[in-house]
Design a protein around this nucleic acid. Structure first.
Lengths: 127, 127
DNA sequence: TAAACCTTGACACACCTTTGGTAAGGTTCG
DNA sequence: CGAACCTTACCAAAGGTGTGTCAAGGTTTA
């Protein structure tokens, strides 16, 4: 008995069965299915569901927010498009001397990397 | 006459004045103010507003989505928390041979970098 | 000073998201 | 078999988002 059914999983994770199906539909936690089509929640899914709750509560997020983050993660083109827009800060380009434009573009790249690779501050996930 | 008032900006960007105020409130495009408190839209803001429209339409996003991406960009702790959750894939850790755990953790880091630094495929922003 | 702007704040409405039910029908198991 | 599950597919209510409009009051400008 390594995997729980949806109602049991709901009990131990604090979500309602209804929400577990919803969470699956938006792609956040998908449980494997039994041969008859029943969702089977293993330790991995249960942990994931619990940490999801904590994440939402701790950061005041909605499921939609996390779903969007996931979409960003999976869709490289989308990520590039959004990043490109966000990179164009409100500072007018006039503030960048014409000759420095190329370097500016390159730095933007570097900044992106730095922003995405913060010091390994483990803290979540262990809760 | 380098800066437009809100109604003029609305005309040239396709947004309504109402929406320009809304967009400002959610932190996406904030226009500097005149001494009397009037919003003054310069070329930078106008461009930003136009590309924002294209981004939303092209990618079928909502303003809230972009606002959340901005929040992710600015709040490092939030970004780490969300990334940490997303990194914990549905694959149970059992699938990783015990000894490889350390290497696994390190690779996760590398994967993150790779995901955040896609080949420089410029395309947007010039529209 | 008066017309034509601007500002914030409030009311309002349509639509989408989040959740809960409930119904019709398959599965498991005592 | 029958109780107690599961599944999907709807209807629905509460709350958030996107958007318009109007009011009361300051600013600009002719």
């Amino acid at each position: 008995m390594d995997a729980l059914t949806i109602n049991e999983a709901a009990q131990t994770t604090g979500w309602s069965p209804r929400m577990l199906r919803y969470i699956e539909r938006i792609g956040l936690v998908e449980a494997p299915r039994s041969s008859a089509g029943y969702r089977m929640y293993g330790p991995g899914e249960l942990q994931r569901l619990r940490t999801l709750r904590e994440l939402l509560a701790a950061r005041d997020l909605g499921l939609g927010d996390v779903a969007f983050a996931l979409r960003l993660r999976r869709d490289a083109a989308l990520r590039e498009a959004v990043d490109a827009w966000l990179d164009a800060e409100p500072r007018r380009p006039e503030s960048v001397p014409a000759g420095d434009w190329l370097r500016w573009e390159q730095d933007k790249h570097a900044r992106l990397l730095r922003a995405a690779a913060p010091p390994p501050t483990r803290e979540m996930e262990t809760a």
